[in-house]
Amino acid sequence: MGRREIALTLNGTQRRIEVEDQVLLIELVRGLGLIGTKLSCDTQVCGACTVLLDGRPVSSCTTLAIEAGGRTVQTIEGLADGTKLHPIQQAFIDRFAFQCGYCTPGMIMAAKALLDEKPDPDAATVRHWMEGNICRCTGYGSIVEAVLDVAHPERVGEKLP
């Protein structure tokens, strides 16, 4: 009680980690050096800390680390294949879908969860899904376009109406 060992798959690697019950998932992943996951609002509003838990997007700032026990955690660091970026990462670059980049890891993880569940979303679906991820500098048009580019490679570069 209070402290336990959990076994999880973190970005494809099996790990056993001892954690105290009150430790948050964001403390766990950042403590392991995975600092792509960002803390911002700390209240589940902004989405900067989004990671995938068994494929579902969660706020790692408001999820206990022990919830990862027996489950799969994906963070932004797990997306690229060596030096080859994940298509969503590449699309964010191609679309200039960020400026400061602080929200970007969370945006990309949220988008991944969406595209894994619905590979063919329309713009309204992307907007609805991503409305819990806040960007203070770029604006949302280019972000929605980046996600749509991945979903519809045949329409890459198309402007949203």
Binding site: R56, S59, A110, N133
Partner: peptide, 12 residues
């Protein structure tokens, strides 16, 4: 239900 809070809150 599909419009409660945001997708992360709904997931958990």
């Amino acid at each position: 239900e599909a419009n409660v809070a945001n997708v992360r809150v709904r997931a958990a």
